[in-house]
């Protein structure tokens, strides 16, 4: 409620600034990467819960609300705890590494998503490609190619868990949370650096 007359409006010295709080249960940053704007979120144990595309502030807020519900509401913007994941992602996107070298935490994924993402990470290496149908087969759900596509489309750990390596059997690059251009960029990057990066 706002009173009609506010006796102290505009009175008082300048405010110092927002509080300085230490890193807490979850720290995040929004980072402009080579493939788009991404939200990077890390738990206090260093495990990474999100490397997710967040093209606008609404998308950032949606991820933060999900993190608050699934991990802890103590979520603060803090660059320092996310340094490691930011650097690993940068190395990968520059072709200096063949994986985003972090410990992922699939707390934001559904049970089915965990199965699909786990199967993907185990089966499809750097520079390799597969199809939605083949991945569905691999996780023992041969008729669930569409559901596999949906599970990959809401991957909270994009690039880290390489859902960009899964393509439609009919051709084309198919859908991608970061947009088709980002997917093409990643596929071209891996094709160009295949065998050149240190294993």
């Amino acid at each position: 409620m706002t009173p009609a007359t506010h006796p102290f409006a505009g009175v008082g010295p300048d405010l110092a600034g927002p509080p300085r709080l230490p890193p807490t249960d979850v720290s995040y940053v929004v980072d402009d990467t080579a493939v788009g704007r991404m939200l990077l979120a890390v738990r206090d144990n260093g495990r990474v819960v999100a490397t997710a595309y967040a093209p606008d502030d609404d998308a950032v807020d949606r991820w933060l609300v999900r993190i608050a519900g699934a991990v802890s509401p103590r979520v603060l913007r803090h660059p320092r705890p996310t340094d490691a994941v930011r650097r690993s992602l940068e190395d990968f996107l520059a072709g200096r590494a063949d994986r985003v070298d972090v410990e992922p935490d699939l707390v934001l994924a559904t049970a089915f998503q965990r199965e699909v993402l786990g199967g993907l990470a185990a089966a499809v290496g750097y520079g390799d490609r597969t199809t939605y149908a083949a991945l569905a087969d691999r996780v023992g759900r041969p008729r669930a190619a569409r559901a596999v596509g949906t599970a990959l489309g809401t991957n909270p750990l994009c690039v880290t868990i390489p859902c960009h390596r899964v393509l439609p059997a009919a051709g084309g690059v198919g859908g991608y949370a970061g947009g088709p251009a980002a997917k093409e960029h990643l596929l071209a990057l891996e094709a160009g650096h295949r065998g050149a990066t240190s294993r």
């Binding site: 608050a68 509401p73 913007r77």
Partner: peptide, 28 residues
């Protein structure tokens, strides 16, 4: 029930908290 991320509280309310603190204990 789930609570909003704490950062939202900071972003939305830090000015009010600072102003109230000033009114109650002074700028120093």
């Amino acid at each position: 029930m789930s609570l909003p991320p704490f950062q939202h509280l900071v972003d939305e309310h830090w000015r009010d908290v600072a102003r109230l603190a000033q009114g109650l204990v002074g700028p120093v």
